[in-house]
Simulated scan of single mutants.
Amino acid sequence: MEAIIASAIAVLGTLLGSGITLAFQRHAVEQGHRFTRGERLRQERLDAYSAYAGALLNYRRVLVHLWFCSYEEPPRDDVGEVRMRSYALRSSAQEALFRVQMLTDDVALSRAAEEVLDDITALYRVDDDRAELDARRRDTREGIRLLVGAAKRQL
């Protein structure tokens, strides 16, 4: 009888040990999946935020160039061609903005990303006033810098 009880206890101990091992393995696998998902999201955000900052810089650069082509003598490039390039870069920036907005949970970051694009677009509306252009160039450069800092904190 003692042998049967000892066998039953051994089997019960083995089953209990297996159950505990299974629970720990499940927990480790779930942690691994959470880490992998989190890391993938972090990498996607890094890619999206970097692409957006680059798109903003390119769009800003071509708008400043367009201003110089329009108001400085003599224009180096055809104004119409530069304007068309600005439209294409604005579209690229908007696409990058949408990707940022889809990947972020931070409403303030999403709003700031949109505001920076609007501020850069406003460069287009600066009349023949070099001082105003220079001020807006500084403001938009700072806006991009602040946006990158905010995005970095989310990573």
Results as ranks from 00 to 15, higher is better:
residue 1 M to D: 09
residue 2 E to G: 15
residue 3 A to K: 04
residue 3 A to C: 05
residue 4 I to E: 10
residue 4 I to F: 15
residue 5 I to T: 02
residue 7 S to V: 05
residue 8 A to P: 00
residue 11 V to G: 09
residue 12 L to A: 10
residue 12 L to V: 12
residue 13 G to D: 06
residue 14 T to N: 11
residue 16 L to Y: 14
residue 17 G to F: 09
residue 18 S to N: 02
residue 19 G to F: 13
residue 20 I to E: 13
residue 22 L to C: 09
residue 22 L to S: 06
residue 22 L to D: 12
residue 23 A to P: 08
residue 24 F to M: 08
residue 25 Q to K: 09
residue 26 R to V: 12
residue 29 V to M: 04
residue 31 Q to D: 14
residue 32 G to Q: 08
residue 32 G to H: 09
residue 33 H to F: 13
residue 37 R to A: 10
residue 37 R to T: 11
residue 41 L to W: 06
residue 42 R to H: 04
residue 42 R to P: 13
residue 43 Q to N: 08
residue 46 L to R: 08
residue 46 L to P: 02
residue 47 D to G: 07
residue 47 D to C: 05
residue 49 Y to L: 13
residue 49 Y to I: 15
residue 51 A to R: 02
residue 52 Y to M: 07
residue 52 Y to A: 02
residue 54 G to L: 08
residue 56 L to D: 00
residue 57 L to A: 06
residue 57 L to V: 12
residue 57 L to H: 12
residue 58 N to W: 00
residue 58 N to G: 11
residue 59 Y to N: 10
residue 61 R to M: 06
residue 61 R to D: 10
residue 62 V to T: 12
residue 63 L to Y: 00
residue 66 L to Y: 03
residue 67 W to G: 14
residue 67 W to H: 13
residue 71 Y to F: 13
residue 71 Y to V: 00
residue 72 E to G: 02
residue 73 E to Y: 12
residue 73 E to F: 07
residue 74 P to N: 00
residue 74 P to S: 01
residue 76 R to H: 14
residue 77 D to R: 03
residue 77 D to W: 05
residue 78 D to S: 10
residue 81 E to G: 10
residue 84 M to D: 07
residue 85 R to M: 02
residue 85 R to N: 03
residue 85 R to S: 05
residue 86 S to E: 01
residue 88 A to D: 05
residue 88 A to S: 14
residue 88 A to I: 11
residue 89 L to R: 09
residue 90 R to N: 10
residue 90 R to G: 00
residue 92 S to A: 12
residue 93 A to W: 05
residue 93 A to I: 08
residue 94 Q to A: 03
residue 94 Q to D: 07
residue 94 Q to G: 01
residue 97 L to T: 01
residue 102 M to P: 11
residue 105 D to I: 01
residue 106 D to F: 03
residue 106 D to L: 01
residue 108 A to F: 05
residue 112 A to P: 01
residue 113 A to R: 04
residue 114 E to C: 06
residue 115 E to G: 06
residue 117 L to V: 01
residue 118 D to H: 06
residue 119 D to P: 03
residue 119 D to L: 09
residue 120 I to D: 14
residue 121 T to H: 11
residue 121 T to D: 02
residue 124 Y to V: 13
residue 125 R to F: 13
residue 126 V to K: 00
residue 126 V to C: 02
residue 127 D to C: 15
residue 129 D to Y: 13
residue 130 R to S: 14
residue 130 R to G: 11
residue 130 R to E: 15
residue 132 E to C: 06
residue 132 E to A: 11
residue 133 L to C: 10
residue 133 L to I: 02
residue 135 A to P: 00
residue 138 R to S: 04
residue 139 D to G: 01
residue 143 G to Q: 01
residue 145 R to W: 15
residue 146 L to F: 08
residue 146 L to Y: 12
residue 148 V to Y: 04
residue 149 G to Y: 00
residue 150 A to M: 05
residue 151 A to Q: 04
residue 152 K to Q: 14
residue 155 L to F: 09
